[in-house]
Nucleic acid binder design. Structure first.
Lengths: 204, 204
DNA sequence: CCAATAAATGAATGACGTTCATTTATCTCA
DNA sequence: TGAGATAAATGAACGTCATTCATTTATTGG
């Protein structure tokens, strides 16, 4: 029979569906409909919805910009990589719980990224044993920050409990003249600088 | 009618169910069964499963140890708080996507924690405007690290693609004589030290 | 040209969260 | 004491999912 479907097409359709309807809109039925096919037909090409998510994840990983590790000083390369990584996964937070625990075996794009980042760390003078822990720490921060980037502006509104949390409430107010100015970007930059400085000191 | 149920009982039952069967086992039906009640009875006390998750979250927040902020030097207090926070949520990662985006309004335990942490930062000499961004950065790292703590030991096994990722594969091997020695704890300590050093420099 | 195979179909299944009309027990107040 | 009013529990029913499977259909290779 004419191959209407394949994994690449499914991945592309899933990405488009996610961008239009979000992760709630990503159902096997909706995915099949967008491909003009019955839901059960998808199972000839993927074994489960989880595999669809893995395909999407790999595709996203290939879009993370790690090019700086061959052209820029280490600090700038890390910053560029981290911003790109966070920017992409901030719009795909439901994938983070999958990725963070997913073995890299048979995830070529993910491995390619790790290889490039590792090379960049080596070139910058990191001892080999420090590299993986450093990358893990950076990734943890990036994933956490990706969640943050989706927080509503009023996440720190203490509401009617403001009286019992005076210092916190005042600190929130101090962020700007407008109430509830959530500092996701400022915080990301602040923490990233700290991590870069602290990890950078591990170089020999 | 005799009040068989209330929010505290539901929260406690949910926590026990989670600890025994994990988050997959936390269904409204299972929760009701563990309370000796019909599923629909739960809806007299909570408006949705999401509210159950919020109740669980608040309960966990009350268990995070932020006591050091009144008794220890800032660095040690942050470390104690961060380890406690990560330790608790590492076993509750499905909640992280909820928390990270949940307004603190009407979350008294969460607010109490933020108030204590804010006070600790003030006492340590942080400018008011730097405090919330610093906390946000630390929390991002803690949440990301909580995911990490659940990664399987062989997450970095490059498998048959090892040949195309020589530097990365070698860096992973360098971590220990045994293959696939996942450095979640080492990485957490490394990144946390970096963050503490970097953020600590913001004190006046 | 036929048989093997890959792919698509549609009906069915079993979880799951949630709703709702109804029943049941307790509390309030005359 | 007794009669509402009310809070709480019930069980049946829904709609939405992911997933399975027997069956049909089209293509391909020997």
């Amino acid at each position: 029979m004419a191959a209407v479907l394949d994994q690449d097409g499914i991945t592309a359709a899933a990405l488009e569906l996610i961008s239009k309807k979000g992760y709630d809109g990503l159902t096997m039925a909706a995915l099949a409909r967008s491909l003009g096919v019955a839901p059960s037909a998808l199972y000839n090409h993927v074994s489960s919805k989880d595999e669809v998510l893995k395909l999407v994840e790999e595709d996203l990983m290939s879009k993370v910009d790690f090019g700086g590790f061959t052209t820029l000083p280490w600090e700038k390369a890390v910053r560029q990589w981290a911003y790109s990584y966070r920017g992409i996964f901030a719009r795909h937070t439901p994938l983070i719980s999958v990725i963070a625990v997913l073995p890299v075996t048979d995830a070529p794009q993910t491995l390619a990224m790790y290889e490039a980042v590792t090379e960049g760390f080596l070139r910058a003078g990191f001892p080999e044993q420090q590299i993986i822990p450093s990358i893990v720490a950076l990734e943890a921060y990036i994933f956490g920050a990706a969640f943050d980037a989706n927080a509503p502006a009023d996440i720190f509104d203490s509401g009617k409990l403001a009286d019992s949390t005076p210092h916190f409430t005042s600190a929130v107010r101090s962020l700007g003249p407008e109430k509830n100015n959530y500092p996701s970007d400022l915080a990301f930059s602040l923490g990233l600088d700290a991590l870069i400085a602290g990890l950078g000191a591990l170089r020999k």
